[in-house]
Design a protein around this nucleic acid. Sequence first.
DNA 1: TTCTTTATGTCAACCGGTTGTCATAAAAAC
DNA 2: GTTTTTATGACAACCGGTTGACATAAAGAA
Lengths: 325, 325
Amino acid sequence: MVVKIDDVAKVAGVSKTTVSRVLNNRGYLSEKTIKKVHDAIDYLNYQPNAVARQLYKKETKLVGLIFPTVDNPFFGELVAELEKRLFDAGFKVLIGNSMNDPEKEETYLKELISNQVDGLIVGAQNIGIDEYHNANLPVVAIDRVMNEDIPVISSDNYMGGKLATELLINSGAKHIINTDGPRNLETPAHRRRDAYEDVMKDHGLDPHTCLIDFNWDMDQKAKAVQEIFTEYPEVDGIFATNDIDAALIWQTATKLGYKIPDDLKIVGYDGSNTTRMLLPELTTIQQPVEEMATAAVKTLIQRIDGKKTDLEQTIPVKVWQGQSI
Amino acid sequence: MVVKIDDVAKVAGVSKTTVSRVLNNRGYLSEKTIKKVHDAIDYLNYQPNAVARQLYKKETKLVGLIFPTVDNPFFGELVAELEKRLFDAGFKVLIGNSMNDPEKEETYLKELISNQVDGLIVGAQNIGIDEYHNANLPVVAIDRVMNEDIPVISSDNYMGGKLATELLINSGAKHIINTDGPRNLETPAHRRRDAYEDVMKDHGLDPHTCLIDFNWDMDQKAKAVQEIFTEYPEVDGIFATNDIDAALIWQTATKLGYKIPDDLKIVGYDGSNTTRMLLPELTTIQQPVEEMATAAVKTLIQRIDGKKTDLEQTIPVKVWQGQSI
DNA sequence: TTCTTTATGTCAACCGGTTGTCATAAAAAC
DNA sequence: GTTTTTATGACAACCGGTTGACATAAAGAA
């Protein structure tokens, strides 16, 4: 049978209340008693039942993460960094990979609420779900517009788009294509595209955006990339909305005979550890994953503690100098 | 205030017992009552408190995952696949990234047990921790030797090592170096090295293994890779124990003036989605992540259901044909 | 010596569901 | 018309901790 607090009390020769007092460090306790209790705990290898405690305390020390998938260098790194910081703050992480399926996201949201998580960090890319705010739960969004009272942590997407476009223009590209996800998703990531369009127009160039949906499988994406080259044969620069797409563009272009960066210049977006390791030649806009994770966790904990927080935090991006421009 | 089962009962005009019966589909129920209850649930947006249920039922529908980090293409993909299957089977996932820190792993183990997870899937790379088996909990290990009664799911590491070494030899390499983590960790991954050594000897070649610890940071790894080239100037083939290391080797070699694959042939290991996307030129041994995830989840659920399972499952690997040999 | 302070025990309520027992009554079957 | 089945309610115990109230006693301070 599983060891319970009464078993510990019996072995330690004290009352259940005293064991609980030792565990929670409340009330008056003598050194001797504390030791007796700890000895009993060690002897029995007692693990308090967190579920029972959670029920009474109405606090689980659990945080839910809802992200598209950890099988993506950027989200994988982000989730890893969030998890690390949450662990340090005493929280465990319940993870939900929405796979960009709104239904799955809603299911996760409900189940996480049902599991009484103390808070939620959301980075899934779906259409706003009302439940988030009537969940009456501390929520922090990453790179996603939710609703008025949910704080959003983003990297400086506009600056990122501006930097990327300028890098391409300054390296001589004239016919620059941008790739982006569907516009109907309200994500701050679209500011990259806004910046791209602004910079292009400022330089008297025509902006063109091609749709590459994050949710597509590789074949669909490959097809869309092919079409860029047939539709815009004069293309000499591409600003991809993420590094995976940038890699695909690179490969496709190479197969088609383009030399990078001579014939075609490419700038990616995200600059995760993994990308920089596997494809360091790709010039890309590096999102400040660690800072974003720090800000998200800090903000969430402030919310959990009932404090007011900033509603928008924007963190600067960096350029990773590869050899693709 | 949060909506409770009594509130639902009141709105539906039935008893608490009846609501619970509807929720759990037990006993006799009329269509009319079921509808009334569901209407009340919808109206109130009632979410049953899973914690209360867990306490009584002694079942949480939670599975703990202990892995080094999701910020790694292989583990990220593996965790994503595990999570997907567990979700389909009705389990939520509590994640613990041990960062290869035995202390952190032990803390996680304790906290997951305290949280009453129904089972554990472990892929962390640390020294065996006794707690796992006296945890008295269904556990499945991935690519890790635990103890006698814990089932292990592995890809066919020996075959992978054999294939990798043969690929290198068949493409003409003679001075082939292998990289591997510290030998003291008892992981089935060392069979790759065993295979490498066997194949080398079979061909009358000298095996040499260089240590690259998974835990090292990039600088330490880079230094170790540099040393391979100074210590073995005649090297013309490298079998890396993972793709990240292979990528680092590739870059270092290129900087040193080696042409891949003419001067140096490289074979990696893992072949995750991300690697194949970002660095498709790398010839690598592809671990069957999806099959491993399927086997692990299936085995864990069998264990949770109290059934006997195979103690060892080995799943075939594939070769990803890049251009690095 | 008396008053605090410290230390511990007993007891029961509580957290929010689930479930078994019993009771009751209407509907269906015989 | 009686028996069985179906439908629901009332009630309380239970899951395993936490906590407040109250009692008691020893140690320390005034």
